[in-house]
């Protein structure tokens, strides 16, 4: 389905990654252009803020899980990913899926109002008050705001996401050279894209790997803190995939 002009392997890879990214993102790229999402009203915000902590955590865990499932589907569509061993596919997804979810968030971030799309409308950080983890929420919004300011194209986000997943530096990989080879192809494709579009300056402005890792660690810490305060809720009421990855 690619035009004849795209014979260079890295261009083909970029197209393939873009297709996988578009097919597995929500909201879809078409819905981002000139979006007409409403902002939550005062009453709606109060309603969310009045929810018991355990309920709000469960609600957010469900939304995160839906996003993770889309990232798993993205990974499966990445050329070469399914050729890795099952073990390494699991290692890479366990380590990288949340990072991709966090990066993808910037697509549905409205910089003018500092809100993010949540359950169909735009929400500011205060909506999540009942979670009881204001620093984590603030860090996530800061990340989304910073990424949003970079005005990344869907191709850039697709390749960035692929590189977050296909990371030969993750611990416990069985066949590190194989992952490194795939990572190398994606890395070249990304650099070729940036050169072609004169966006090489993007590299220095991206969040550092350490920052994303710290954010994911913060999330894990908050899950543990929540479990201590609300024993049994995670086991009884959280999505199984969320428990498997984070609890």
């Amino acid at each position: 389905a690619c035009p004849q002009a795209l014979r260079v392997p890295s261009e083909l890879l970029t197209q393939s990654v873009l297709l996988s990214h578009r097919a597995t993102c929500h909201p879809r790229a078409e819905d981002l252009q000139g979006h007409r999402w409403a902002t939550f009203s005062r009453e709606e915000i109060c309603a969310y803020q009045s929810q018991p902590t355990a309920e709000m955590w469960q609600r957010c865990a469900r939304r995160v899980t839906e996003a993770i499932e889309r990232v798993v589907e993205f990974a499966k569509r990445l050329r070469g990913f399914l050729e890795l061993s099952q073990h390494d596919q699991i290692v890479l997804l366990k380590a990288g899926a949340m990072e991709v979810v966090l990066v993808r968030m910037c697509r549905a971030f409205d910089a003018a109002t500092r809100t993010v799309l949540f359950e169909g409308k735009l929400a500011g950080p205060e909506l999540f008050r009942s979670l009881g983890c204001p620093e984590l929420v603030a860090s996530i919004f800061d990340l989304a705001q910073g990424l949003s300011a970079l005005r990344c194209s869907e191709s850039e986000l697709g390749l960035l996401s692929a590189l977050l997943l296909v990371n030969a530096g993750r611990p416990w990989l069985q066949d590190r050279p194989r992952v490194a080879r795939l990572q190398g192809h994606l890395d070249v494709a990304f650099r070729v894209l940036l050169r072609r579009t004169r966006r090489e300056g993007l590299l220095a402005r991206l969040p550092s790997p350490g920052r994303l890792r710290a954010l994911c660690s913060q999330h894990l810490e908050q899950v543990q803190a929540f479990r201590r305060l609300h024993p049994g809720v995670v086991s009884a009421a959280f999505p199984p995939l969320y428990r498997e990855l984070f609890a």
Partner: peptide
């Protein structure tokens, strides 16, 4: 794979 049955199942599931 034993500790990640759901992830394993999602990866096996051929719905791409």
């Amino acid at each position: 794979q034993e500790k990640h049955r759901i992830l394993h199942k999602l990866l096996q599931n051929g719905n791409s």
